[in-house]
């Protein structure tokens, strides 16, 4: 093939399969920050309002809400929300620290991301132990 026949710009390989690209830990906790935030909006806030409302209304309604939350499914919901709160708050605190230029370098940023991921899971595990 003559040089002139070749396209001027070589088509670059586009490879954006998110499931095949190995995500660094900060990217993982970032997407989980979003996932947990959406969970808290759709499930966390209404469950919180419903439970506080019931607890203040009457001992009977409190007992009913307590029973629902400690059922097998209720505990699963609680545990998911517990993880959401832990992960969201810890990732948020990490964000605030990055904003005041603490831990901005690559190595500390990766380390703090790993800490957020692991501590949130450990706190959730502690909740699971208490719930079951």
């Amino acid at each position: 093939m003559a040089a002139a026949d070749r396209p001027l710009v070589k088509p670059r390989p586009i490879y954006l399969n998110l499931f095949a690209i190995r995500q660094p830990v900060p990217a993982i906790i970032s997407i989980l920050h979003r996932v947990s935030g959406v969970l808290l909006i759709l499930v966390g806030i209404p469950v919180l309002l419903w439970f506080v409302d019931a607890s203040l209304a009457s001992p009977e309604r409190y007992a009913g809400a307590y029973g629902a939350l400690t059922s097998w499914f209720g505990r699963l919901v609680l545990l998911t929300l517990a993880w959401s709160v832990f992960h969201h708050v810890l990732a948020g605190i990490r964000h605030l620290l990055l904003d005041i230029h603490l831990g901005l370098d690559l190595a500390p940023a990766r380390r703090s991301a790993a800490i957020v991921l692991v501590v949130a899971l450990l706190l959730t595990l502690a909740c699971a132990v208490r719930l079951w």
């Binding site: 979003r34 935030g37 959406v38 808290l40 909006i41 806030i45």
Partner: peptide
């Protein structure tokens, strides 16, 4: 504060 925070986050998403 929670609801305003939720709005900004949801809008970004």
């Amino acid at each position: 504060a929670l609801l305003y925070h939720a709005w900004v986050g949801a809008r970004n998403v």
